[in-house]
Design a protein around this nucleic acid. Structure first.
Lengths: 231, 231
DNA sequence: CTAATATAGTGATAAATATCAATTCAAACC
DNA sequence: GGTTTGAATTGATATTTATCACTATATTAG
């Protein structure tokens, strides 16, 4: 499924980027008419690090992972994306190149909006520009904290933090299917997949979480927060 | 030494932020007249994480370190700052709070410009806004690569990368006094100070670098690049 | 100049983490 | 149903890195 999307307007779309509310009716109309929609099945690459940032991406349904590709194939999953969020890397304003990759974790429907259009609104609409800056800044802060976590916390602390962020920021429930494989959980929390298994098992033994098939339930959130805070 | 600085104009200052060239003569005049200057001696805190981002900081002379404060007092030095660079964290557009600290490494002279002024130009001057966005984006990218380095490379790779960045980006010479103590070099490359000593010694033994008092000379840059690239 | 203090350096050890080699498990496929 | 295939799991081991306990060397203050 792909093609120009004129069925829904970005102004009424419930999953639109909040910053679009700073656009005028005409501007909204313009992006609505010029956007492209496309569907991806779980596992498909939406864009790859190194490719040009010709379009901004917005998910209208599904979840995707953003990851950095490091040395000898190792990856760092920066986070999971849900609808309602602008997805273009900082490369858009540096070298017009993506520096991370975006891959669908579930089936995904995505809108592509020409970055030329976005950049033109940045120049002509100061509220929109400010909203964009807030968005970039907020993501930048998250990267700081992700870095601190990965560099300074030990494995249990990183795993605890990872589980909490999945529960509180992605799935909005203490019982969730992480979608991520153990390998991917490792890329998300900075450890080998074997250690993911061991630490999850330990959390189970201590009654902090419970695993049932592929779903994880947080039983003792306070303890998890403690482990996360104490590194 | 401190006070309002009307002696030099930000438009002619050789150390001005490049993005100031996007300001009009009147705007330049306004910031020139409203800026404050202050001097710091080596070791002094210029601003601390948690304090309000009421001012943007620009060094007019000297070098300072930017660092994140992590868990139980551990720090991550993100980088060294020289004149010509805007210093305000991403917090300016999120919660008006600094998320990293800035400390003078040498004696430093700094200009403080009210963020209200900067933010007002962002709203009225789209070229300036775009320049600011490029600046943020570029720093954001650097954070990505710093994170990858710290998380995925092993100690020799991180040290090699650290030395190369000091030589090529900060001191612009293969022979330099890093200003940073071994402890700080450790905070910069993500390792304990003892390991900084050991790895520097090893690099010396292999003829890659030479230490003479407090100065470090890179003798075999290619090999250093190789170590950095291979993690 | 000398004591006091901080930083640099060293070796031994412990802790954390990755890697390797199997094995089990589960979903997908004839 | 049996089989294939990849993921999950487990235990053993190797590697990496931090910590500890010192000694040496500067640097600063009196």
């Amino acid at each position: 499924m792909f093609g120009k999307g004129t069925d829904i307007c970005c102004g009424t779309c419930p999953n639109a980027w909040p910053n679009f509310k700073n656009l005028s009716t005409d501007e909204i109309k313009e992006i609505s008419e010029n956007r492209f929609q496309s569907s991806f099945i779980a596992g498909e690459m939406i864009f790859k690090a190194g490719s040009p940032t010709s379009n901004a991406v917005f998910l209208s349904s599904g979840i995707a992972k953003i990851y950095l590709e490091g040395f000898d194939g190792k990856k760092i999953i920066l986070g999971l994306c849900k609808p309602g969020r602008l997805i273009v890397g900082p490369g858009a304003y540096v070298d017009s190149t993506h520096h991370y990759s975006l891959v669908a974790l579930t089936d995904v429907r995505a809108c592509f909006i020409d970055m030329k259009l976005i950049k033109s609104y940045v120049q002509t609409n100061s509220l929109f520009a400010e909203g964009y800056m807030e968005d970039i800044s907020e993501k930048s802060l998250r990267t700081f904290y992700k870095m601190m976590s990965l560099v300074q916390k030990k494995m249990p602390g990183r795993m605890a933090e990872g589980l909490l962020s999945l529960a509180d920021e992605v799935f909005l429930s203490d019982e969730f299917n992480p979608i991520l494989s153990r390998q991917e959980l490792g890329e998300f929390t900075g450890m080998a997949k074997e250690n993911v298994v061991r630490i999850l098992k330990e959390f189970c033994n201590e009654g902090i979480i419970e695993t049932n098939g592929s779903t994880i339930s947080i039983l003792n959130k306070e303890k998890l927060k403690l482990i996360s805070a104490n590194g």
